[in-house]
Amino acid sequence: MVKKIMAILMVVGLVGGMAGCNTFAGAGKDIQRGGEAVEGAARDVQN
């Protein structure tokens, strides 16, 4: 019984992890764009 529960939890975790990959990739791109905006603002201040 315990093995079945552990197997189910592992499958659920795997599926959740796979679905989260797209979310994290999108968040990473958003953070990168924000960083680029900060870099541009810093360059403007230097000039």
Rank of each mutant, 00 (worst) to 15 (best):
M1Q: 06
M1S: 06
V2T: 09
V2S: 11
K3N: 09
K3E: 07
K4D: 01
K4S: 11
M6H: 13
M6Y: 10
M6Q: 13
M6N: 05
M6A: 12
A7R: 13
A7T: 11
A7D: 08
I8G: 02
I8Q: 09
L9G: 00
L9I: 11
M10G: 06
M10C: 08
M10T: 07
V11A: 15
V12Y: 08
V12G: 03
G13Q: 00
L14I: 10
L14S: 10
G16E: 01
G16A: 08
G17R: 05
G17V: 02
M18I: 15
M18H: 14
M18Y: 15
A19S: 12
A19K: 14
G20M: 14
G20Q: 09
C21M: 15
C21L: 14
N22G: 11
T23V: 13
T23F: 05
F24I: 07
A25C: 08
A25T: 12
A25G: 04
G26Y: 02
G26S: 07
G28W: 06
K29D: 10
D30H: 10
D30L: 06
D30T: 04
I31P: 02
Q32T: 09
R33E: 14
R33T: 07
G35V: 04
E36P: 03
E36H: 14
A37L: 14
A37K: 14
A37T: 04
E39N: 05
E39M: 04
G40Q: 13
G40D: 07
A41I: 01
A41C: 01
A41F: 09
A42L: 15
A42G: 02
D44W: 03
D44F: 06
D44A: 14
Q46E: 00
Q46H: 02
Q46T: 02
N47Q: 15
N47V: 04
